[in-house]
Design a protein around this nucleic acid. Sequence first.
DNA 1: AAAGATTTAGACCATATGGTTTAGAAAAAG
DNA 2: CTTTTTCTAAACCATATGGTCTAAATCTTT
Lengths: 236, 236
Amino acid sequence: MRRGLEFKKKARIIIVDDNYEHLSGIKELIEIESDFDVVATATSASVAISLIKKYRPEIVLMDINMPEKDGLTAIAEIEKLDLGVRIIALTGYDDPDLIFRAMKIGAKGYILKTMASAQLIYAIDEVAAGKIYLPAALSSRFFEYFQKSFKEENQELSDEENLLNYLTQREEEVLDLLTQGITYKGVAQKLFISETTVKTHVNNIFQKLQVNDRTQAVLYALNNGFLNRRKVKIAI
Amino acid sequence: MRRGLEFKKKARIIIVDDNYEHLSGIKELIEIESDFDVVATATSASVAISLIKKYRPEIVLMDINMPEKDGLTAIAEIEKLDLGVRIIALTGYDDPDLIFRAMKIGAKGYILKTMASAQLIYAIDEVAAGKIYLPAALSSRFFEYFQKSFKEENQELSDEENLLNYLTQREEEVLDLLTQGITYKGVAQKLFISETTVKTHVNNIFQKLQVNDRTQAVLYALNNGFLNRRKVKIAI
DNA sequence: AAAGATTTAGACCATATGGTTTAGAAAAAG
DNA sequence: CTTTTTCTAAACCATATGGTCTAAATCTTT
C-alpha cells in the first residue's frame, strides 16, 4: 500500500504564550491558514505541561519569554517526559544564546514572532514532518555562536604552549590510563611493564606538564584537549 | 559616501578537490554562472594551504574526502592561520558527523556535490556576505546529531543515581578543591580545618561516590555534572 | 657509525594518601 | 527536647605516590 493515497492526519497543536493577545493571534492564524488542529492553549508553562500530558499533541509552540517558569525550563521538562512532543520555540528577538540553549535541550524549531505568518506555518509543517527547522537567518546566528564557543574553548593554548604536545607516545599511553583513574599497578599490568617503569614515566609526565601529582596531571590533560579528538567540549 | 554606488568587489575563490574532473566542473560552473573569481585550484590540501597563503582569497571551497591530508584537518589548519578566509565544505553525501565536525572547526558553509548548481552559487553568495550557510536539509541533519549527542551526555544519570547528590555541603566544598588539584594540606588551609578532618571528609566522599582514590573522585565529579550548571559538555 | 631520544627498570627514601575506629561539639530534624 | 546528621579531630597503620639518581636496551636521526 505504499505510495498510495495518504490521509495525512492533522497535527494537533498546543500553543503556550503568557501574552493572551499573541496567543489568540497565533491560534487564529493557524486555524485559518493551515490544516493544523489547535487542541489547547495555555498562558503559563505549568498549565501547559499538564495540558500536554492530557492531550498528547504532536506539536507545541512555546513562548520562551514568560514570567514564573520560563520557556526553556519548560521545554527541558517536557523533553524529559519523553512523550514524543515536538516543540517549536518562539521569541520576539533573535538572541543567539536563547536559540542555542533551546536547540540544545531539544527544541525542534525556533521562530521569531516578527516573522511572516507563512514562515510559521512552514516551520510547523516541517517539524510535524519530523524535521528540525531553523530559518536561515536564525541558523546563521546559531552557528556563529556555536563556532565562537568552540573557538574560545579550543584555542586556549597554541601547540607550543600546550605541554601535552611534548609527551612521548608511551607517556601519552600512561597518561591516558591515569585519566581513567587507574593506579600505577593497574597501568603496569595493562602496558605489560613494571611498576617502577610506570613511575618513571609518570615522573617525566609531571615534569613536562609542570605539575606535582596525578590529579593535577589528569586535570591538565582533560582541560587541554587530551583525547579531544573524539570528545568535544563546548563551554556556554 | 555611504549608500552611494558600491562596486562590489568580486569575491576571490580557491577550489580544492582531489578529483580533477570535479574540480574543473565546479570551476567552470562558478566562472560561467557567477561573478566570483576563481584565482586558483588545488588537488591536495597541502598545495591548497600554500595557495591560500599566497592569494588570500575570501572563499575556499574544500572537498572533505581527500586522500593524504583530509579536508577536515586542512580546514582546521587554515582556520588556525586566522587569515579571514571563509571555508565552504563540500562532500558527496550528508554524513551528519562530517557536517558537525566541519562546522565545529569553523567551516562557514557545507554543501553536497549532488546539489543543484544554483544552490552552490547561492551558498557562496551567502558566505561571501558574511553569513554562515547550511541548506535546510543539512541543517536538519546537523541538529539531529547535535541534539542526540546532548541527550546521551546529559541523561546519563538521574538525580537519584548521581551519587554527587548525596554529598553534604562540606563534602562538596572539599571535592570542589580536589577538582582543582589541591592537596589535603592545601584544602585544610583553605577551609581552616585540620588535615585529619579533610581526610575524614575525603574518606566519606570516597564511600559515597564508591571510588577509592582522589583521581577517581575527581573524574566522577567532572563526568557527572559537578559544577556543570555553567559548563556544558557534548560528547561526539 | 655516532649521537640523541625513548623505553625499560632498579635502588632508596620521604611523604602523601587511604582505611578504620573512636569521639566530642554543633547544627538540623523530629 | 531528644534524635540524627554533620562537622570536627585524633590515633594508628599500610600502602601508594612522588623525587632523585643511575643505567642498560632499543629505536631514531643524522
